[in-house]
Simulated assay, not measured.
Amino acid sequence: MTAIRHWGRKLLDAVLPPLCLCCGAIVAEPGALCAQCWSGLRFVAAPLCPVCGQPFDTDPGGADMMCGRCLAEPPPWARARAVFCYDDASKPLILRFKHADRLEGAPAFGRWLARAGAELLIDCHLIVPVPLNRWKLLARRYNQAALLAQALGRESKVAVAADGLLRLRRTPPQGHFSRAERQRNVRGAFAPHPRLDVCGKNVLLVDDVLTTGATLGECSRVLLRQGAARVDVLTLGRVLLSPA
């Protein structure tokens, strides 16, 4: 059976060669990046803020040293981590996954998330994705955050509540909003599913990109009000913010 799958894969690749998830160049296997796109990604690594996961330009002198933004306004989650920086190199990768039906990358993304969020998964009880509005879900046909959460769940063997959170209303795109405007835009936009049980549990909230943290912060508050013991955040990409 293994040989049949092997030659079936070879035949399919000959007819429809696998393409780089980021640029569309031909690659060796499905769900992979070409060497150029891989080398262009800036993976998030220490030293970084232990709370928001923003990488520091220089070592602040201690693993517990928070960035100025978190010191001034601590987010509701406990820890946030990301796989790579969201920039010109990684943007096509996420946009193809999010809007262009390039879903074959989900298994690889799950592995990347598991590595980036290893410390968050140690005592995690439940993985919950950021939800989409029902009309956007109908138009897109899938929730990219839910696909990431499910891939991470398969990789980590942690339970996933794919519909644990509900989006109550459609919010305007936030691309040009300030931090304060983003927070107002998502306030009251989320609610727990009636059957969601997070009481006393450590929850890992998953999304594709962390920007200002407004959406992830509002979802974290909902989970904490529902009784979660702790909420951590894990994303594929994160926008690098200027120092506060």
Rank of each mutant, 00 (worst) to 15 (best):
residue 63 A to L: 08
residue 100 A to Y: 04
residue 205 L to E: 15
residue 142 Y to M: 07
residue 7 W to D: 00
residue 95 L to M: 11
residue 192 P to I: 04
residue 95 L to D: 05
residue 21 L to C: 12
residue 200 G to M: 08
residue 101 D to C: 05
residue 186 V to L: 04
residue 227 G to R: 06
residue 105 G to N: 03
residue 244 A to C: 09
residue 171 T to R: 07
residue 137 L to G: 10
residue 99 H to I: 11
residue 147 L to P: 13
residue 161 A to D: 00
residue 216 L to M: 09
residue 50 P to R: 00
residue 128 V to K: 06
residue 2 T to W: 12
residue 124 C to F: 14
residue 187 R to W: 03
residue 241 L to Q: 14
residue 15 V to R: 03
residue 105 G to E: 11
residue 234 L to K: 02
residue 107 P to V: 08
residue 194 P to N: 00
residue 19 L to C: 10
residue 60 P to E: 09
residue 198 V to L: 01
residue 6 H to P: 02
residue 153 G to Q: 00
residue 222 V to Q: 03
residue 151 A to K: 01
residue 221 R to T: 14
residue 177 F to S: 03
residue 92 P to V: 04
residue 60 P to I: 04
residue 233 V to N: 01
residue 40 G to F: 07
residue 143 N to K: 09
residue 93 L to C: 06
residue 242 S to P: 09
residue 46 A to E: 15
residue 200 G to W: 11
residue 237 G to I: 05
residue 243 P to C: 04
residue 241 L to G: 11
residue 189 A to W: 01
residue 16 L to C: 10
residue 188 G to P: 03
residue 3 A to G: 00
residue 184 R to F: 09
residue 130 V to R: 13
residue 235 T to D: 00
residue 235 T to M: 08
residue 213 G to L: 12
residue 2 T to G: 13
residue 173 P to T: 10
residue 113 L to S: 05
residue 75 P to S: 05
residue 35 A to W: 13
residue 217 G to W: 12
residue 172 P to N: 09
residue 202 N to C: 07
residue 114 A to V: 08
residue 217 G to A: 12
residue 229 A to P: 06
residue 187 R to T: 06
residue 66 M to Q: 08
residue 208 D to M: 07
residue 122 I to H: 15
residue 44 V to F: 01
residue 144 Q to T: 14
residue 240 L to T: 09
residue 8 G to P: 05
residue 115 R to S: 07
residue 117 G to H: 06
residue 16 L to H: 14
residue 244 A to L: 14
residue 218 E to T: 14
residue 30 P to N: 10
residue 148 L to G: 01
residue 52 C to V: 03
residue 35 A to V: 14
residue 139 A to K: 11
residue 78 A to M: 01
residue 243 P to G: 06
residue 135 W to Q: 13
residue 194 P to E: 00
residue 240 L to A: 05
residue 80 A to I: 01
residue 42 R to Y: 10
residue 83 V to G: 10
residue 59 D to P: 15
residue 109 F to G: 11
residue 124 C to K: 08
residue 148 L to N: 01
residue 27 V to L: 02
residue 99 H to F: 14
residue 147 L to I: 07
residue 31 G to K: 07
residue 165 L to I: 13
residue 148 L to W: 01
residue 37 C to D: 13
residue 179 R to H: 15
residue 36 Q to A: 13
residue 54 Q to D: 15
residue 215 T to G: 12
residue 53 G to I: 07
residue 93 L to T: 02
residue 166 L to F: 04
residue 183 Q to E: 14
residue 189 A to M: 03
residue 8 G to L: 00
residue 32 A to T: 12
residue 69 R to D: 06
residue 6 H to R: 05
